[in-house]
Design a protein around this nucleic acid. Structure first.
Lengths: 190, 190, 190, 190
DNA sequence: GATGAATGAGTGTTCATTCAT
DNA sequence: CATGAATGAACACTCATTCAT
C-alpha cells in the first residue's frame, strides 16, 4: 500500500489558507481548494472528514501556533507591563511573519463555521494572561474592570492594526507598534 | 435608482437585514430574500442591479443612518472629551435600538462584498470628528498619533462590546458603557 | 410571467417511468431524468420538491389510475366470483395496456423509497374488495383465512404473470388469463 | 475463483449479506462491505472481479443452498402432494432459519444486477420438481397448465408470505403454513 | 412594473475502481 | 496476498440570474 503523503496534506492546508485569503471563505469551495492543491476533491476526504473538518482543523492549528508565539518568552517574574508588552510584540511579529495565517483566522471568526469551535478551548492557551490580569488588578496596577474589557483594549487593537482590510496603510514598524502599545496600556492601567 | 413603489423597496431591505441576521450572509440567497419580502426574485432585479448591489446598498444605507445617529446633537463648542463621549453613547443607543441593523454591518464587513465599498465614502460622514481629533492633537489634549490609531481605540471597542458573538455577556447598561468610555479616553488622551 | 408548462411536467413523468423501466431505479438519477425530459435538472425542482417527491408522486399517481381501472364496472350485486373475475381481467387489461406504468410500480415497491409511502393509503382504494371478501367468507363461498392470504392468491399471481422479468414468455392472451384466474379461484374458494 | 484464505472470502460474503439487509442494496458500497469484512477494498478485488461479480456470486451461492434445503428428503416414491408439501415446508424452514439470506435474494431479484443472472441456471436445481409436475399432469392429479403457472402458485406465495416487507404480520407458525399450502394445492390440483 | 418559470454552473460528497508498496 | 491512498465521474441539490408574459 501507499503511505499517506504528508506533502499532500500540507498542500491542502496551504491551498485552503491561500484561497480563503484570496477569494474569501464563501467562495472557497472544496473543488477549488482541491484544484489549488493539485489533488482530486475525493482525496481531500481521505485527510478530512468533510469541509467543516478541514476548515476547523486548519483554524485550530493556526490558533495554536499563534498562541504559542504570543506566549513565547513568557516570564511570570517580570513586571506586568513588560509581560503584556512582550505579548503585544510577539503577536505583532507572528502576524507580520504569517499574514495569511492571521487573515485566515479573521475570516474564520466571521464565517458560519466559527460557531462550531469551542472558543474557550482556544482561549485556554491564554490562561496565564488571565492570571496576570487578576494580579494586576489586585496590586492596583490595572483597572478593576471585567476581563473582557481588558481583552478588548489589549487584543483587538492588535488585530485591527494588523488586518490589512481594516488598516491598509499600517506597516507594523517598531515605532508604530510601540505607540499603539502605549495607548493600550493607558487604557487599562490604573 | 428610484422607483414607484417605495413600500416594496423597503420590504426588500427589511427582508435582507432580517434574513442575514437569522441565517447568515452565506445562506441568504436572492430567492429567500424575495420570498421573505413577498416579492418575486425577478422584481428584486428591478430595484437592484444584482445581489451585490442589494447587499452593498443595504450596507451603505445602514451606515448612513448609523453615522447620523452617532453625530446627533454634535456641538462643536463643547469640550473635546464631551463631544467624543456623546458620540460614544449615541452609538451605543443606536446599536441597542437597532441590533439587527448593526449585526448586518458586522456580517457585511467580513463578507467578500465588503471590499466593494469605498470605505472612505462611508467614513466621510465622520469628517467633523476628524476635525475634532485634529484640534485635540493641536491643543495637546489628545495624543499626537495617526488618525487610525484614534479610531481604533474609540470605535472598535464599541463594536466589539456590542457584538454578541464577540461579547456574549455584555448587557450595555449605562455604567458599563461609562467604564468602557473611560478606558477609551485614557487610551487617546495625552 | 410564464405559466407552468404542463407538457413539461408530463415530459418529466414520462421520462421518469421510461428511465426506471430501462435502467432501473438506482441508476435513474435526477440529471438523467432531466436530460431524457429535455429539461434542466433545476427545472425538475420547480415541479417536485426533491427526487423522493418525484418518484413517490409518480408511484401514487400510477397506483391511483391502476386501482381505478381495476374497479371499473364494479357491481356489488354480482356473484362474488364474477366480481373478482372482473377485477382480475381489469387488472390484466391495465397492465397489458400500460406495461411501463406497471413495471414502474414493481420497481418502486422494491426501492428504498417504497417505505415512504403509507401503504394503507394506497390500499384503501381496494376497500370495496375487502368487503366482498368478508361477505364471501360469511356466506361460506370463500375460505375463512386471513385477508392477506386471499390477497396473495388473487393479486400476486397477476403481478408475477404480468411482470416480464418474472414471466418473460407470458403473452396475456384471453385464454391464459382465464386459466390463471381459475387457479386463483380454486385457491380461495371453499 | 479459488484462493488461499477462505475465511476471508467467507467474511466478505457474510458482510455483503449483512449490509444489504441492514442498509439495502443501493447503499451497500464496496468500501462499506470491505470495512464490515475487516478487509481493504482492494482485497475484495482479489476475490471478485468487480462489485457485480461479488453480488451475483453471493446470490447464486444462497440460491444453491436454498434449493438444496428445499429438496432435502426428496423422495420420488411419495405421493405428489406429499412431495410438494415437503418442499413447501422445507422452504419455510430455510427462510425462517436464514432470514438474512432470504432477504438478500429478494433484494437482489429486484436490483438491476438481477438481469445478469441466467435464471435457468438457478432453476435447474428444481429439475426434479419439474419432473414431478409433469408426472402429476400425466396422472391427472395436477391441472394441465404451463409450468410457470404451477410455479407461481407454489413458490411465490411462499416468498410473499415470508417477506416481511410484503407480509409484516405473518409469523410463520406451523398452522398458517399448513393453511397456505392447502390454498396453493387447491390452486394446482385437478 | 411585476411575475413565476426556467436554467447552466456550481455546491459538498460518495462511488467503484486502480495504483504503488 | 494484501493494503490504504488516490481518483474522475457521478450524485442530489441550490444558486444568481434571465426569459416570456
Amino acid at each position: 500500500m501507499r503511505h499517506k503523503d504528508e506533502a499532500k496534506q500540507d498542500a491542502i492546508i496551504r491551498a485552503t489558507v491561500k484561497l480563503v485569503n484570496e477569494i474569501g471563505f464563501v467562495s472557497s469551495s472544496v473543488s477549488k481548494i482541491a484544484r489549488e492543491a493539485n489533488v482530486s476533491p475525493a482525496t481531500l476526504y481521505i485527510y478530512y472528514e468533510n469541509k467543516e473538518d478541514l476548515l476547523v482543523s486548519t483554524y485550530i492549528d493556526i490558533k495554536r501556533r499563534m498562541s504559542e508565539a504570543a506566549l513565547e518568552g513568557f516570564d511570570d517574574g517580570l513586571p506586568i507591563r513588560d509581560i503584556i508588552k512582550r505579548l503585544w510584540f510577539n503577536l505583532f511579529r507572528f502576524i507580520a511573519d504569517n499574514p495569511g495565517d492571521f487573515q485566515y483566522t479573521e475570516q474564520f471568526g466571521n464565517s458560519p463555521y466559527s460557531s462550531l469551535v469551542d472558543q474557550s478551548e482556544v482561549e485556554k492557551h491564554f490562561a496565564p494572561l488571565v492570571e496576570i490580569a487578576r494580579r494586576g488588578i489586585e496590586r492596583k496596577i490595572i483597572k478593576d474592570v471585567p476581563l473582557e474589557f481588558l481583552q478588548i483594549f489589549i487584543f483587538y487593537p492588535i488585530f485591527v492594526l494588523a488586518n490589512p482590510r481594516l488598516c491598509a496603510g499600517f506597516e507594523g514598524d517598531e515605532q508604530s507598534v510601540e505607540t499603539a502599545f502605549d495607548m493600550a496600556w493607558d487604557a487599562i492601567k490604573l
